[in-house]
């Protein structure tokens, strides 16, 4: 059984449909990536999965449960955690406090939370250096690291990472991707939304979206070799 199964999902804003019958499956332990041009519905998909947009129709099954239309609170407790596009760290709180907010659903279990903090700092040593600095004063790359670390605090079974490479230098992007790979190999399933073709190197599975539906599905490496798709959806050659 797949960890996450999306069937015929449709959603939109006001009267404007964005997702029109989207279906895909993600197996436990893999890194999946959602590709597509601006407006294809990638962000809408992850917002739906995280419960921030209520789907119009279709079904989302997670870990054997039908979680369609659930509240974000319940979904986070269930283990679906989103690292939103644009980082959205709390600017007037320190790194330490940001991480503490991330552990909100498990605020009574301090001991385990401390262990996760240690792990997160191991992934991103930079955070340790700026431990008591306000998040608003961090660089874009550091904020992205903090956002991912904060997501980890909620003990995800699946981590949804939206456009983590946006606005980062190629070098920083590489670092972030490497850490995501490490997080994945430590046992967390990952779904990334990306426009950066570099992500395919760490992806087990790739989905390509266009106009709210799936147009291609394959292994990460396959797409890299697939010249047509690469040019149409990833812009630059990899």
């Amino acid at each position: 059984m797949s960890l996450l199964e999306v069937q015929e999902l449709s959603a939109g804003y006001g009267s404007l449909p964005v997702l029109q019958g989207l279906s895909f499956k993600i197996e436990e332990g893999e890194t999946a990536v959602l590709l597509g041009l601006n407006g294809a519905g990638k962000t809408t998909t992850v917002l739906c999965l995280a419960g921030l947009i209520k789907p119009w129709g279709g079904k989302i099954t997670f870990d054997g449960k039908n979680v369609t239309g659930w509240d974000p609170r319940k979904l986070v407790a269930e283990g679906i955690v989103l690292v939103p596009e644009g980082r959205h760290v709390f600017p007037e709180l320190t790194i330490a406090q940001n991480l503490r907010i991330g552990a909100w659903p498990y605020r009574r279990d301090r001991k385990h939370t401390r262990a996760i903090v240690e792990q997160a700092v191991e992934y991103f040593p930079r955070l340790q250096e700026r431990w008591t600095q306000l998040a608003g004063t961090l660089s874009g790359g550091e904020q992205q690291m903090l956002a991912i670390a904060r997501g980890l605090m909620a003990r995800p079974k699946i981590l949804l990472i939206d456009e983590s490479s946006l606005g980062l230098s190629p070098k920083l992007t590489k670092t972030v991707f490497e850490v995501v790979q490490k997080i994945n190999s430590d046992g967390t399933t990952v779904l990334m939304v990306e426009q950066n073709a570099g992500v395919l190197k760490i992806a087990d599975r790739a989905f390509v979206m266009e106009k709210g539906t799936l147009v291609y599905e394959g292994q990460g490496g396959e797409i890299l070799d697939h010249a047509e798709i690469r040019e149409a959806y990833l812009g630059a050659p990899a």
Binding site: A50, L52, P72, H88, V89, L93, R100, I101, W104, A154
Partner: peptide
């Protein structure tokens, strides 16, 4: 306190607090 920090967080970025599973 967690609750106090969550109140502050809500005032700084309500969307992000929803993302973190805080009502």
């Amino acid at each position: 306190t967690d609750l106090g920090l969550a109140v502050l967080a809500t005032s700084q970025d309500a969307f992000a607090t929803r993302v973190m599973g805080i009502g």
